[in-house]
Design a binder for these strands. Structure first.
Lengths: 219, 219
DNA sequence: GTCTATAACAAGATAGAC
DNA sequence: GTCTATCTTGTTATAGAC
């Protein structure tokens, strides 16, 4: 089950690579359509709330045809998670230990809040899963995320010790950045009720957050 | 359907009240057991992810017996949401327009982060629902929450105009308080992977957040 | 590769005895 | 009020023709 998912995740990226069993052009096209449809429904309803039929309809094909490309529903979900995780963690990876500290943190905040605006479905996909205990995400959190998190904590603590950032607990700083930036995507339904058009709100969030984290971290 | 839910939510609070059809002591006890079990499972798995059987098992009774007390699964869920919403919004309601501004905001932050520590399941119950578009919560958000939110925005803006708080967009301020405080409960699974025991982390969150919002808002 | 039909099963809800 | 047995529906997954 996991096997198929991983294979799909890796190979769907480059169909031309000369591995054992590359997917055909049609296969890649249909896989992509399924994953696009899956992002739509899984992010809106979570794993159990999503019906295979919705995915099939959104992808413009029949239910059995979907299952022709993926062995089961869980494989679609896991493939989807894996296919987005690198992109999702990229901004964290791009923090430069040799850059100007405050600038690096603010840059990270800006990237994250823009992701919330540009990729709200990806954000909710992960949010849905984590709120429910991350049963299908614990593995990649332990491998991909944990290392990145620790690396970032170290960089931040070094900067603080050097007096280049105000001293705050680095782990809490990262959590609050995640919380404040992703909130606009994850709780969009609530924001829409309270503030109207979410797009406008996310647009003005950037300035607010830059100000907040600058005040917090300026040495 | 909604009728039963509302009736249950209101009457289960005070069994002795002299309304048309008060519930018996046994009824109240069983209703309470069902709602307690429901909080456990709905907060962990969301509405569709929760099985009636899990609720029954957790409540120590049979599935049909659960349905004897509530007409269906949705009624349990709606009753549960309603039975917690007042408690959940209490800290916001308690912001005193005549109090010392910064103190009032910090007090609010502290109450919220403690709720995250003491009532993580309630937090996730709402988070789960909102991430999925709040289909069964839109109504009470429009009635209960919207008014409270607007009231709070007005209080904050007045304080800012009077120079008693630094000027920031009040709506974003509220969103960031919600985001940073609830994050510890809602994303507990992730925090556990990255920082170990969530209890310790939430405990140290209070000081971090007090510092952050003080720096942000001190005039 | 794609489809219709259907098997297999899980889950919500009901009937009716106690 | 509570339970066992069961109905009914919804949903995943498969079989097999094209």
């Amino acid at each position: 089950m996991i096997y198929y998912a991983v294979r799909a995740a890796k190979e769907s990226v480059s169909s031309t690579m000369t591995s054992k069993k590359p997917f055909s052009a049609v296969q890649n096209k249909n896989r992509a359509a399924i994953l696009a449809a899956a992002l739509e429904t899984f992010s809106a309803h979570g794993f159990r709330g999503t019906r295979l039929e919705q995915i099939a309809n959104n992808a413009g094909m029949s239910k059995p045809n979907v299952i022709y490309y993926f062995p089961n529903k869980e494989a679609i979900f896991v493939t989807l998670l894996n296919s987005h995780i690198d992109k999702w963690l990229a901004p964290l990876r791009e923090i430069d230990p040799d850059g100007e500290p405050l600038e690096q943190v603010i840059e990270y905040v800006v990237k994250k809040v823009r992701m919330s605006a540009d990729m709200p479905r990806e954000s909710r996909l992960f949010a849905n899963e984590i709120v429910q205990g991350a049963p299908r995400l614990k593995e990649s959190m332990n491998s991909d995320l944990k290392g990145l998190f620790d690396r970032t904590v170290n960089i931040l603590e070094k900067w603080m010790k050097e007096g280049k950032l105000a001293e705050v607990p680095a782990d809490h700083l990262i959590y609050s950045i995640w919380a404040t930036t992703q909130h606009y995507a994850d709780f969009e339904a609530q924001i829409e009720v309270l503030s109207g058009t979410p797009e406008k709100i996310v647009a003005s969030a950037e300035a607010y957050l830059i100000n907040m984290y600058t005040k917090l971290l300026k040495p």
